[in-house]
Nucleic acid binder design. Structure first.
Lengths: 221, 221
DNA sequence: AATGCTTACATTGTAGACAAAGCGTATGAG
DNA sequence: CTCATACGCTTTGTCTACAATGTAAGCATT
């Protein structure tokens, strides 16, 4: 995936995972000097890395005042999920129209593995979580829309992941999710794009409700 | 709007308009040295400006090889419009739910001005074009979703504008657009979010068809 | 003559120094 | 004692220099 990049890129990647995992907490001031000492190199590539993080909305930079790790309000988080809900539903609709038969077959294979993992772990989160990401990732790829892939994968993805880490929305309903995934794939196989979109919308809506419950807020609207 | 920024920001803004207007043509190599001579300053702020342009997908940068102004294929252009269609329809739905009565009243005022301009210009494009942007902009603001606003306004907006400039999709059907706008506002006023979304979807779809016609391609699918 | 290699040049990536803007603290006036 | 101002320090923005990489031209070899 990564072809040995420039130093700025490496720092960017390291910082991305650090922020997403919460190793650097939201709101933290990112001093360029401190980052130089931590990651090596000079300020030039560090600044580039920070700018890339800003482009992905992981940090906020204000002129002459420095950069801070983003700290999302509940409202902003809801906005993100609202957009994600729409775009992934759209992706699912397009996937139903555009995925090859082979890709659909591979989806079934993936689901089979998930089923195994659920039984083996009896509810453990790790595989299910990775599996969930994998499933959604393939649907998004199936949309065959590069811009859509870029938006969901590049920008929203990290923000969502970041707050999953921090709220540990992990161990959530693996069997139920599996069933929903299965129904979605069936709709895709039947080339029923409207149904596929609807099912994906409900599927994500459930996970949003789940998240809001964990945040101690009754689902609004 | 602009609070006297850093040099990098100024260069970024100038380059943005230059690219959008086609003064710098798609595919052009952006030599840092040349840009220094053109815009002043040193390479550091120039590089920052280029990186910001990259973040907005206006230029593509490859490591150790430099930056080029983006040159969209027809497929990529379709992808962008496909996403925009979905997001703006979504924005319209949300606007119907969330705009204040006052904001809706202002929409009517705006439409009134457009009507005047259409008569005065008898089909001239400038006001209508600016007016169209203004109309869509207000709907997007009305969604009250900051992330959505950012995506539509920050990223997709410039790309769309760029290709409007270059294909001169301008003088297109002002009266028809006005009527469609009016129906949309009526739906918003009635708080009929589903209808508002549908009407916006059709409205944009028409402009897409229009664009494809001008590009000499039959609308696909 | 065409292809592959070598070498020189141009351009980008990185480093470190300088300039300017913020921020905190301390000091003095009210 | 409180507030305002000024000073100094810290941090960011910018510039210049150097290193590394990509590109192209010229030469040699087949």
């Amino acid at each position: 995936m990564s072809e040995v990049q420039t130093l700025a890129d490496k720092v960017f990647q390291e910082m991305t995972t650090a922020i997403v995992r919460g190793e650097i907490k939201p709101g933290t001031k990112l001093s360029e000097q401190a980052l130089v000492e931590r990651y090596g190199g000079s300020r030039a590539p560090i600044r580039e890395a920070i700018q890339k993080l800003e482009a992905r909305s992981l940090v906020v930079r204000v002129p002459n005042a420095g950069a801070r790790v983003i700290s999302l309000s509940l409202a902003e988080l809801k906005d993100i999920y609202e957009v994600r809900l729409e775009l992934e539903s759209m992706a699912c609709r397009l996937a139903a129209e555009r995925m090859t038969d082979e890709e659909i077959a591979q989806l079934y294979t993936l689901l089979l593995e998930h089923k195994k993992n659920i039984k083996a772990d009896s509810g453990l989160s790790y595989y299910q979580k990775a599996g969930d990401l994998d499933f959604h990732y393939r649907i998004i790829q199936g949309s065959k829309n590069a811009r859509l892939q870029q938006m969901l994968g590049g920008e929203l993805y990290h923000l969502v992941r970041m707050y999953r880490y921090q709220t540990s929305t992990n161990k959530a309903r693996p069997e139920q999710a599996y069933t929903e995934h299965y129904r979605i794939v069936e709709a895709i196989e039947a080339r029923d794009s409207e149904l596929a979109e609807l099912l994906m919308r409900r599927h994500i809506q459930k996970s949003i409700n789940n998240l809001e419950k964990q945040l101690g807020n009754a689902p609004s609207a």
